[in-house]
Design a binder for these strands. Structure first.
Lengths: 180, 180
DNA sequence: ATAAATGTAGACCGACCTGTCTACCAATTA
DNA sequence: TAATTGGTAGACAGGTCGGTCTACATTTAT
């Protein structure tokens, strides 16, 4: 019976994403999930372990979501369009499985953890690699330069949308890549 | 005599940038700066006020630094080159006045403050506008699309460099913009 | 010289943090 | 039936948080 474990991860993830990892205490997660502290510490040896589990969950959800959005593209330009249209939907809260847009959890979490060699920072880095590989798999023989451009613009779109509240950033990225 | 005030801001800023705003306590700032708590609260009514002052200081430093890097450009492509070369220098810790690279303080701080209408989040947004305007001033009749491209790529370069540790991102941005 | 402002040192407040522990309950399994 | 497992509730420990306050020292201005 690992349903408690899953409830803990789901609750933690939604709170972490909404308010930031360091701003959410264990007790809040317990209160919201209605699970006892002892149970949490049977499943996770520390808060960091729970954070890591939540990041992994988010990574799975996100990769799956992105996969679905890219898979039906027939040309490279369609992949790009699908990718950035998907971002637009995410930013405007049309993708329920991703939750209310609050930037990228992995960027946000990296920002909170100053040690780049910590397990958590490394996992954030890993997530970005995963996304990059997924995009690469959906392109036909992409050059490194093209892939780099897509990925940098993707990060730029996420950051711009979140910090400056400009939801049109992904559409601008499509135009930029048209000329590439 | 506002030297104490300045010391507090400088100390707070360097700690905030290194470790994140929420991870740095008032007491740590006091210990490092060697200033009494009462003095801090005479100058600032709350920690948030100190955070805001530190952000303003960072904004000034950053804008000044960027201004110096852009001002001697003669063509638009030179402005772009100067901008992204400056980012490269920043990321590789060759710009002492910006401190050891730990991403963008304003992006990081936005990530920590979940309420987008808070004064702090709004100031982060303001900073990005300031940078955009500064870039615009150094370009000759730039189209909105061109300016958008530069700014999105800039955010992408910062985020990519920080999260995935790819210091070459700015140079890739130059190539992307060459084809624009 | 006197008064006001600015400073230091740090005790203290109530709240919250992660993590441990006791005590008890319910369900499954040998 | 007895024992094990997984659960609840929450006190507790040791520490940090932002912020207030007292008591005293030093500087500045009138």
């Amino acid at each position: 019976m690992n349903s408690k474990r899953e409830i803990l991860i789901d609750t933690a993830l939604s709170l972490f994403y909404k308010n930031g990892v360091n701003s959410v205490g264990i007790n809040e997660i317990l209160k919201v999930s209605g699970i006892a502290k002892k149970t949490l510490y049977r499943h996770f040896e520390s808060k960091n372990a729970l954070v890591l589990a939540a990041l992994k969950q988010r990574n799975n959800t996100f990769i799956e979501w992105l996969e679905c959005n890219l898979c039906d593209a027939k040309t490279d330009t369609e992949v790009v369009k699908n990718l950035f249209n998907a971002l637009t939907n995410w930013f405007s809260n049309s993708e329920t499985e991703l939750g209310e847009f609050r930037g990228c959890l992995f960027i946000n979490t990296s920002a909170e953890f100053s040690d780049p060699s910590s397990e958590i920072s490394l996992y954030c880095q890993y997530h970005k690699q995963q996304v990059r590989e997924l995009i690469a798999e959906n392109l036909s023989n992409p050059s490194d330069a093209y892939l780099d451009a897509i990925c940098i613009l993707k990060e730029g779109a996420i950051t711009t949308a979140y910090v400056t509240n400009d939801l049109s950033a992904p559409q601008k990225c499509i135009h930029i890549l048209e000329k590439f």
